[in-house]
Design a protein around this nucleic acid. Structure first.
Lengths: 229, 229
DNA sequence: ATAACTTAGTGTAAATAATACACGAACTAA
DNA sequence: TTAGTTCGTGTATTATTTACACTAAGTTAT
């Protein structure tokens, strides 16, 4: 176990929880550790914050280095500082999270990571450090967030059906939602524009396509109005 | 300006936002800085995290050292990592906050702090570092928190009137609340026990006294039930 | 004594939001 | 033509939120 030399203050790292939504499934981006400690184990992408580097920048850099994923809007989750969370010694980690479309990125592992891979959230392997706890915290936060803030802008194709949007909410909240009530509510927010077009090639009645109306969304949120779901 | 010697990683500090509620007023605990930078300015109590010290422990230690305030339940707020927030160099700060009764503590400044004092929240002097931003973040968080979680257990005398409780909520939320609706709602939570006693010495109709029923509160929150106000 | 003042305490009606629930329409595949 | 699948729609019930005004019980001043 290297890195045990005396060091006057805690080390500072960032970790990224990247949730991926892909056709009904919630996924989690993990990397296989290429070095000790926990070599060979899966872990959240992350690493040490460099001097004169913003926390958000560090998170994006580590994410890009270890997984190839770039240009993501990360939100700060929580800072973990248990004394025994890293066997190398006292290490404080600031966690960031985001919800994205996996198919928008090509995974490429490097720098310390032997591999990068999406896992089904409910089928994640054992994780290194205290990353299990971090992921659980992130899941709770994601659910809470979704309840009062519409999501989906970046997670669905530009044109989508209401069923697709509902499926997304059901996946994140891990619950079933009544179809009619969901439509009533989401349409009453008037952030969706019905296109009059219909999906093609379905083996059943084709659904109407919708688009997000970013302007209306921004206007509503800026004026202090809060959505709820 | 000492402390400019090369240091491979960001320094790590904690800062405490202590809100005090005192008969209708929301206050903020500040310390006068005894050394550079910002010597003579008011700032949040806080300081460097020591090696093998939990973040929460560090926050409590700094709070006790600089203000004499001890045994407070601190909740993590956010971690601030802007590059220019400390003129000594890159310093990341984990902020903690709490809401307490000022009269429960005797202030005593020491260790780096020339003085410790409660200020009316809306009359705080200019602050050192990025502490203004930190306080604003804490105020928003406090308001959000109060909306779905009853407060007051530690902030009022053991026996209190409903008007006192309402005044507390109005102070925190910075808004007026309808008396009848407030009473209806707070009583429907059934976490208050009416005592049948009445306040003494008032120059008007005496109000009935109530007590918090901690057991019912814990039972309700543990069962996943959420209060709203 | 009584009038003036202050805060306590109470109920209802209206509006809004949340929930539960079932069937015909449109399309494809066999 | 039938079977199978998903789409799309409305209403009644219940719960929650909001708005709103007067009498009761004490003290103080005249």
């Amino acid at each position: 176990m290297p890195y045990t030399y005396a060091y006057p203050r805690p080390a500072l790292t960032v970790d990224c929880i990247l949730f991926g939504y892909d056709e009904g499934d919630l996924k989690l981006l993990l990397v296989e550790r290429g070095s000790e400690p926990f070599k060979g184990r899966w872990a959240l992408p992350g690493g040490f914050v460099q001097r004169n580097e913003t926390l958000g920048d560090a998170a994006l850099r580590e994410l890009a280095e270890e997984t190839g994923v770039g240009k993501v809007y990360l939100e700060q989750l929580y800072t973990f500082g248990d004394l025994d969370r890293d066997p190398r010694g006292h290490t404080v980690s600031v966690a960031y999270f985001a919800l994205v479309r996996p198919d928008g990125f090509t995974l490429q592992a490097s720098t310390d990571a032997a591999a990068a891979k999406w896992f089904l959230l409910r089928k994640t392997p054992p994780l290194a450090f205290d990353h299990k706890k971090i992921v659980e915290t992130a899941v709770e936060r994601l659910k809470g967030k979704v309840r009062y803030q519409p999501i989906g802008f970046e997670l669905l194709p530009k044109k989508f059906t209401l069923s697709q949007l509902q499926q997304l909410y059901e996946a994140v909240l891990e619950t079933e939602i009544d179809k009619r009530n969901f439509r009533k509510k989401i349409l009453s927010m008037s952030i969706l524009k019905p296109l009059g077009e219909y999906e093609a090639g379905a083996a059943n009645r084709p659904a109407q396509l919708y688009q997000f109306d970013r302007k209306k969304y921004d206007a509503a949120t800026k004026s202090g109005f809060l959505f709820e779901l």
